[in-house]
Nucleic acid binder design. Structure first.
Lengths: 180, 180
DNA sequence: CTGCCAGTAGACCGACCGGTCTATTATATT
DNA sequence: AATATAATAGACCGGTCGGTCTACTGGCAG
C-alpha cells in the first residue's frame, strides 16, 4: 500500500482538481482519507500549500505516464495523439466530468506564490517536451515536433475547460482533428 | 457614471479573474469599491453567486466587443485573428499577467451549481459563434468557419493558461501561427 | 410637513478556515 | 524491559467567511 504521505497528496489532488485550491478545506481532505489533523501536519509541516505542491507533482508524473503509454505502440505521431486524447477523455469521464486539468486546477488560485507559478510552468514544459520527444522519435524534425507539441498542449488545456463547462468529454476525444 | 450595481459587478469580476471565486472575499470587493455590505445585498439579494454571474455576463460581452473591434477592418480571417490575439495579450499585460480567462476563472470553482456551468458553456458558444460568423463573412464556408473558430478558442484558452503560469503574454501573441 | 422608500451603514451571527498544541499510542532499537 | 521516536488523535485558537438584521439617511411625492 502507498504510504500515508502519498495517500494524502493523491486525495488532496483529486479534491483540488474538482473544487480548486481555495474551494477545498483541510478538514474535507482529512475526512476523505480518514486521518486526523495531527498526521497531516506530521507529513506536511508546511500544511496546505505543501500538500498542493506534492499533489501537483504526482499529477504531473501521472500525465507523463499516460503520454508514455499512449506512444508506446504508436505507428506515427497522429496515432499517439489520438490514443492520448482518448485516454484523457476516459480519465475525465471517470470523474463524471467534474474535474479540471489536474495541475492547473490545483496550482491556479492557490497563494499567488511565485513557487506555485513556476511549478506550473515547469509541469507544462515537461509535458510539451515529452510530446515533442515522441514526435521527433516518430520522424518529425525538431522544429515541427516542438510546434506540434505546443499546439496539442494549448488545444488540450482549452478542450479540457470546454469539456468541463459542457460536462461532456467529446471535445477532448475530437481534439486530434484539430491538431494533426 | 455607471450605476452602483455595474460598478460592483465589474470590480468583483476583476477580483474573481485574479483570485478565483473562492479566493475572493465579499469584504474585499466591498473595500475596493468603498461600499458597505448593506448596499451589496440591496443590489444583489442572492449575494456572491449573483455577483459572479453578473460579472461573467459583463466579461462575456466585453470579449464580444473585442472580437468585433478586431474584425471590423480585417482584410481576411487571419488578419482578424492576429488583431484579436494582440488585443487580448495587451489586456493580459495591463493586469500584470496575473489574470485568468475572464469568464472561466470566475465561474469555475464557484458553487458546483448547474447554472454556473451552463452560463460558462453559453459564453463559450457565443464567442465561437461570433468568431465563426466573421470567418464566414470573410469568405470561408460554414464548416471551415466553425472548425477554425473552435480551434482558435481551444488554443486561446490554453494559451491564456500557459501565459499566466509564465507571467508572459508572448504565447498569446504567437497564437495566430498555430491556428491559421 | 409627512410618509414613504431606495439606498447606506455597519454591528453582529454561526460556521468554517488553516494552523498549533498537548496527549496518547504504536513501533523500532538497544 | 527500557527508551526513543514515529505517528495518531483531536481539542483548541484567532481570524475570516458569506449572510442577516436593524438603524439611519436623504430625497421625492402627497
Amino acid at each position: 500500500m502507498t504510504d500515508m504521505r502519498t495517500k494524502l497528496a493523491i486525495e488532496a489532488g483529486y479534491l483540488f482538481q474538482k473544487k480548486g485550491y481555495n474551494g477545498t478545506g483541510i478538514s474535507e481532505i482529512l475526512a476523505k482519507v480518514g486521518v486526523p489533523k495531527g498526521s497531516l501536519y506530521h507529513y506536511f509541516p508546511n500544511g496546505k500549500s505543501d500538500l498542493a505542491l506534492a499533489a501537483a507533482e504526482i499529477a504531473t508524473a501521472e500525465v507523463l505516464r499516460i503520454i508514455d503509454a499512449s506512444f508506446a505502440n504508436a505507428k506515427d505521431y497522429s496515432d499517439g495523439v489520438t490514443t492520448f486524447c482518448y485516454k484523457l477523455a476516459k480519465y475525465f469521464d471517470i470523474h463524471k466530468g467534474d474535474i479540471g486539468c489536474p495541475v492547473s486546477a490545483t496550482l491556479h488560485g492557490g497563494p499567488d506564490n511565485a513557487i506555485f507559478k513556476s511549478a506550473l510552468d515547469k509541469t507544462f514544459t515537461q509535458w510539451m517536451d515529452r510530446l515533442a520527444a515522441y514526435a521527433t522519435q516518430l520522424g518529425q524534425n525538431e522544429k515541427d515536433a516542438m510546434f506540434n507539441a505546443q499546439r496539442l498542449f494549448l488545444s488540450l488545456e482549452g478542450a479540457w475547460t470546454l469539456a468541463r463547462a459542457r460536462r461532456d468529454s467529446d471535445v477532448i476525444r475530437e481534439l486530434p482533428a484539430f491538431v494533426t
